[in-house]
Amino acid sequence: MLKISNLHATVDGKEILRGLDLEVGAGEVHAIMGPNGSGKSTLGNVITGREGYEVTEGSVTYQGKDLLELSPEERACEGVFLAFQYPVEIPGVNNTYFLRAALNAQRKHRGEEELDSVAFLKLVREKLEVLHIGDELLHRAVNEGFSGGEKKRNEIFQMAVLEPRLAILDETDSGLDIDALRTVAEGVNRLRSPDRAMVLVTHYQRLLDHIEPDRVHVLANGRIVASGGPGLARRLEEEGYAWLDEGGIAEVAEAS
């Protein structure tokens, strides 16, 4: 589904990603861990086509297509979703209105009929119920005045409504209370299906207690330096990153 080869990318002329390789198959959930500033968010931004992130070498293929050719909104319409590490506020723009505009833009792109407000509201209520989210966030402006946890929850809610093919969750679990963490896990697990893929960027094992990943990768200095099964995450939590050899890419054997 997603194949990244030898990806080099710069921000403001500074090289952040330095030959990153990653392959995520349909139906798989991968976790990416790694020290602060190693390039995890940068990877998400490059995949989704954010302005200012320049790819200098390498390729990103998504469902057989060259993803780098597409504009950010085309990528979104093709089913690429990013749950932001820091979701932005858009004052005065109603959350429901925003999400309907997004969904309808994507439906239009796929040649499907746009949803009217009644049908949309029905869909939204279903999703809220499943995720155990109250409906008060529907009436507010996009992320305006939301607490950190509410913003993250809102990202998951948007993901649930938009039903992407490839979802990248950038530290969606950071700063969440136990209930909110369950909401995130629920959102991810509900969306898990043979034709979808997910990439979870996280610093903590606790999210992975709720979502069993197929693969765990360590990103350091702009490259994947180690990959393994779920056990790798546990070992990282216990031992940190120091034990990893930064020189070569290691395939870490299952510890458990």
Partner: peptide
């Protein structure tokens, strides 16, 4: 803000008018 809208699939002009309207 603009990128947030684009990433959800909303085109640039619609995004701008949405943000301005808000």
């Amino acid at each position: 803000q603009l990128f947030y809208c684009l990433q959800r699939g909303i085109g640039e002009e619609d995004a701008v008018s949405m943000i301005v309207d808000g």
